Amino acid sequence: MMRIPVFFMTLFLAAAAVHSQTALRDVSLDVSLDYEAMAGRMVEQLDLQPGETFLAVAHPGEFEGLIPHLRYAVMEAGAVDLGVIHVLGEPIPESWRSDVIESADAAARPALAELLKDVDASVMLPGSTPDHPAYAAIQDNLRAGRGRTVHFHWLGNNSAVPLPGHPLPPVHVLEATYERAVLETDYAALARTLQGFEAAMRGSEIRVTSPAGTDIRFRIGDRPVNLQDGDASGARTDAGRVLVDREIELPAGVMRVAPIEDSVNGTIAFPPSQWSGEPVSGLVLTFDKGQVIDVTAGEGEDAVKAEMAAAGGAGRAFREFALGFNPLLAVPEEQPWIPYYGYGAGVVRLSLGDNTELGGEVGGGYVRWNFFADTTVTVDGDVWVRGGRLIGGGLDDTE
């Protein structure tokens, strides 16, 4: 088996690579995707009930072939199809004044929140983001305990992350991987595994180590644990404790939690990366009670400190621990890459910054996602991940 070296990457580092993939996606043949089946899966995961209202939020020109199938599947379920809200298409013309758009967005958000407050379910389709007033308004309602939504980012927002030394595969490979995960995931089995990991973490110490020198420990106490198992039913989301419990990702597969800040201690070691747009190598961050207390690097130490300083307090705060569980999104052994934000089995995310959406105490808005594909994860000594491979609670894959 090929062992992938320790990996660190942020969405900022992946932007150029994914931009090229997105450009290629614009000329790919939409007919290669099974829109009807994916639309049916979304509605099934939403568990739409007769009389519930449904709205799609879309970007002009993105996944237009999916929308009719999605709306028809909603109708078949007996729900009320409210149609589609299109966000303002991007990129916007250079001649347009940014202050005009910002003012219009600020006025639209509360108006849309009021207009959409009784919408039961929605889907955020590729190209639409929380930066757009339509989805920002939906989020405001979600925070108030109203409604639920499916996030269907697809290749947008840099969901596919390259490993150092390995380019992303062609677009058709990315899309085939995501489509298979949407349609073929065993959602019931995924939910059981995620629930088992959450139960194991409660009252336990979680430790993440790597050959490069990562050795960080923490506890979650009674913090909310977000289990992205694909269940977007009203019963499930209404029982949620934080915003992301009402935002269900498809593809599915990750566990996310903001550990108790004071419990986070140890080191995170990074391979070559970029901070403040500058190359950094040999970076090690040392944490004490959830705060970075020491920064050392062979090259680029000042760039790391500059980014942290610009971010304010959030720049030195541990944000979240995430662990992927979906075997259909695991890092491939041949031509390796990290699918869909690290939702694949064995991928770890150790992030910095604002964790309020997860029920944490760190604000500030800054977020830096760091992905690792070769860590070992233990819970009170029981091994769940060894060298980037998910093996379960305390069971060695050689036994």
Results as ranks from 00 to 15, higher is better:
301 E>F: 03
263 S>E: 10
237 T>K: 02
235 A>L: 09
266 G>M: 13
269 A>K: 10
255 M>L: 15
233 S>E: 01
304 V>C: 06
289 K>V: 07
262 D>N: 10
311 A>Y: 08
258 A>N: 08
257 V>D: 09
235 A>W: 08
259 P>K: 03
306 A>P: 02
313 G>A: 14
255 M>G: 04
270 F>D: 00
285 L>D: 06
290 G>E: 02
245 D>T: 08
242 V>N: 00
280 V>W: 10
241 R>I: 05
299 E>I: 08
233 S>Q: 07
245 D>K: 08
274 Q>K: 14
294 D>L: 14
256 R>Q: 14
289 K>S: 15
253 G>I: 00
281 S>K: 08
304 V>D: 03
292 V>H: 11
252 A>C: 12
259 P>D: 08
284 V>F: 05
290 G>W: 07
304 V>Y: 04
285 L>Y: 03
264 V>T: 03
248 I>D: 03
252 A>W: 03
274 Q>R: 13
270 F>P: 00
276 S>I: 07
303 A>C: 11
307 E>S: 03
279 P>S: 04
312 G>M: 00
289 K>C: 13
304 V>K: 05
264 V>K: 01
235 A>Y: 07
281 S>H: 05
292 V>I: 15
230 G>I: 01
308 M>H: 10
252 A>Y: 04
301 E>W: 03
277 G>P: 01
307 E>H: 13
290 G>I: 00
260 I>Y: 11
301 E>R: 14
237 T>H: 08
287 F>K: 00
232 A>M: 04
260 I>H: 10
261 E>S: 13
314 A>Q: 01
264 V>A: 05
262 D>Y: 09
257 V>L: 12
242 V>L: 02
283 L>M: 12
298 G>T: 07
237 T>R: 06
313 G>P: 02
306 A>C: 08
294 D>K: 15
235 A>D: 10
306 A>R: 15
290 G>L: 04
248 I>Y: 08
263 S>C: 12
284 V>K: 12
267 T>M: 10
240 G>E: 04
